[in-house]
Amino acid sequence: MATHEPQEPAGRRRANGALEEEILGLLHTAGRALTPGEVAEHLSTPLAHTTVATTLARLHTRGVLERAPQGRSYAYTPVTDESGMTARHMRQVMESGADRESVLTRFVDELSDDDEDLLRRLLGTDE
Score class of each variant (00 low, 15 high):
His42Val: 06
Arg67Glu: 12
Phe107Ser: 08
His28Lys: 06
Gln7Thr: 11
Ile23Phe: 06
Val52Gln: 08
Glu22Lys: 01
Gly31Leu: 11
Asp126His: 02
Ala18Asp: 13
Met90Gln: 15
Ala48Leu: 04
Gly11Trp: 00
Gly63Glu: 11
Val108Phe: 10
Thr54Pro: 01
Ala10Met: 10
Thr54His: 11
Glu38Arg: 04
Ala87Arg: 14
Thr50Val: 12
Leu111Asp: 14
Leu65Thr: 01
Pro9Val: 09
Leu59Tyr: 09
Val64Gln: 09
Glu22Ala: 03
Glu82Lys: 08
Thr125Arg: 03
Met85His: 14
Asp114Arg: 07
Leu118His: 11
Ala18His: 02
Arg121Val: 06
Arg88Asp: 14
Gly17Leu: 02
Leu123Gln: 06
Tyr74Arg: 00
Arg62Cys: 05
Ala53Met: 11
His28Asp: 02
Ala2Cys: 08
His60Gln: 09
Gly31Arg: 07
Glu101Tyr: 14
Val79Asp: 11
Ala33Gln: 02
Ala87Thr: 13
Glu20Val: 04
Ala40Lys: 00
Thr77Tyr: 08
Arg58Leu: 09
Ala68Pro: 00
Ser73Thr: 13
Glu127Thr: 10
Glu127Gly: 01
Asp99Ile: 06
Pro78Arg: 10
Thr45Phe: 00
Leu65Arg: 04
Pro6Ala: 03
Phe107Gly: 02
Gly84Arg: 12
Ser73Leu: 09
Glu95Gln: 15
Val64Tyr: 04
Leu26Gln: 00
Glu127Leu: 05
Asp126Trp: 00
Pro6Val: 01
Glu116Arg: 12
Arg91Val: 15
Gly84Val: 03
Ala98Glu: 15
Ala10Gly: 10
Ala53Lys: 13
Thr125Ala: 01
Leu122Arg: 13
Gly84Asp: 05
Tyr76Met: 10
Ser44Gln: 01
Met90Ser: 13
Ser83Cys: 12
Asp99Thr: 08
Val93Phe: 01
Phe107Val: 01
His49Arg: 09
Asp114Tyr: 08
Leu26Thr: 00
Glu20Ala: 05
Ser112Asn: 03
Gly63Ala: 07
Asp126Thr: 12
Leu26Phe: 00
Ala53His: 12
Asp114Lys: 04
Arg121Leu: 13
Arg32Val: 05
Ser112Lys: 10
Ile23His: 02
Leu111Tyr: 10
Asp126Leu: 07
Ala57Gly: 05
Asp126Glu: 10
Gln7Lys: 08
Pro36Gln: 08
Leu65His: 06
Ala40His: 01
Glu20Thr: 05
